[in-house]
Computed example of a mutant assay.
Amino acid sequence: MGVAQPDGPDHVILDGTWPYSSGAPYSTHYLGQTLRAGTPVLFVAPRSAWTVLDDWRGALGLRGTGSNSIRMDQARVPAHFTRETSLLDLPVEGGSVGSELHGNPMYAGRAPSFFHGELAAVMIGTAYAAADEYARIVAARPLLLEPDRTRADLHDYQRHLGEALGVIHLAEAALRQTAEDWMEACRRNVSGEAPFTAVEDNRLALTFLNAGRMAWDVLQGILFRTAGSRHARDGERMQRYFRDAATYWTHVGPGMYEPLVRRVGCDTLGLPSEHIALIP
């Protein structure tokens, strides 16, 4: 992680390396965080200010995210491109510059829950793709002793697929409803009816996270496990879906489960929860 230092009243110097900068190879700007004299700073840097490092090619999965590190060497950006705040607790009460500029309340939503919604959507889509591949696999695999029949004719494989799809459908329903709840929280925030609080953010983030966990559980525990070892080989779609899902499971997002459940528990009990760090 890099650092920020003031350069006169109108500019800031950014210096260092920022890892896991998803989308960096395709982006025109970088939105990141750092410290300035011990204070969290959120900043935007144009593409001309940073270099993409070639350090994402060895990732197990999710290689298309382009989560390369970026490097800034004494990059000079306008001071108004920075703000002393944390992305995990960006104040949005009553609306934001973005919601006013675009006339859309979604720009006045809290970031952590939105972040978990993105991850859940990716995981559920991957699980659906794995279920489609599973159906293709079992329908094309002849039985050893009855070559005129396939695994699709066997009750076990029918049950595996149906069980997986039932959970994936449930995860999608949770994702969609929670996304609607998130947008409603944004709308109420901008209209002045009710602020988008950290308590609401915690609840929505945990629901999104649970939806993603459900998708992972059926992908690795049912679909990948029972598809057959031949589909764990390089070049097989099922292997790729598993690698992508496994990489999600190592992401910082799923790692927030423990602090999020503690936060929601404290919120419900009327106890303070903001001291529970989401990221160690």
Rank of each mutant, 00 (worst) to 15 (best):
R149Q: 15
Q5T: 13
N104A: 01
W56F: 11
T268F: 06
Y241R: 14
L14E: 13
L209F: 08
S273L: 08
Y157Q: 12
A108H: 06
N189Y: 02
R230Y: 05
W182S: 04
A227E: 10
Y134A: 08
A277K: 14
C186M: 03
R57N: 08
A49T: 15
T247H: 14
M256Y: 03
E84W: 00
I13A: 06
V12F: 06
W50A: 09
A194M: 05
A131R: 13
Y157G: 09
L206S: 14
A152S: 09
A111G: 03
A127G: 08
R262C: 04
P6G: 00
A205R: 05
D54I: 08
G255E: 02
L165S: 08
T82N: 05
A37H: 08
S86Y: 06
P78F: 03
E100S: 05
R243Y: 10
V122W: 11
M72L: 14
A135S: 12
Y107M: 05
V92T: 08
E258I: 11
E172R: 15
S22L: 07
L143K: 15
H11W: 00
S191W: 07
A135F: 02
M1D: 12
M72H: 09
A120D: 03
E163H: 07
A59D: 04
T150S: 13
R187D: 01
V122P: 02
L223P: 14
R262Y: 00
R110K: 12
R237V: 09
T197A: 01
P25A: 01
W50T: 13
L165M: 09
S67C: 11
A215W: 15
L60Y: 07
L119V: 06
R47F: 00
H29K: 10
M256V: 04
F196G: 07
Y128T: 11
H102N: 14
T150P: 14
V167P: 00
I168W: 03
S69V: 02
E180S: 09
Y20G: 01
E180T: 04
L31Q: 11
D234I: 02
G103T: 10
H116G: 00
A135Q: 12
D55Q: 13
M72F: 01
M1A: 13
R240K: 13
M183K: 05
I222V: 10
Y134P: 05
P40G: 02
S22P: 09
A37W: 03
R159S: 05
G16E: 15
L269E: 15
L209D: 12
R237M: 10
F81T: 04
R83F: 01
H275E: 14
F208Q: 09
R188L: 02
V52K: 04
S96A: 06
Y20E: 05
D55W: 07
T51K: 12
L14Q: 15
A75E: 11
A227L: 10
V252L: 06
P40C: 05
V261K: 15
S96R: 09
H251E: 05
G103V: 04
A198R: 03
R237A: 08
E93Q: 06
G162P: 00
T39W: 04
V44L: 03
V41R: 14
E118P: 02
E100W: 06
D10R: 12
I222C: 01
N210D: 15
A194R: 11
L154Y: 00
S113F: 01
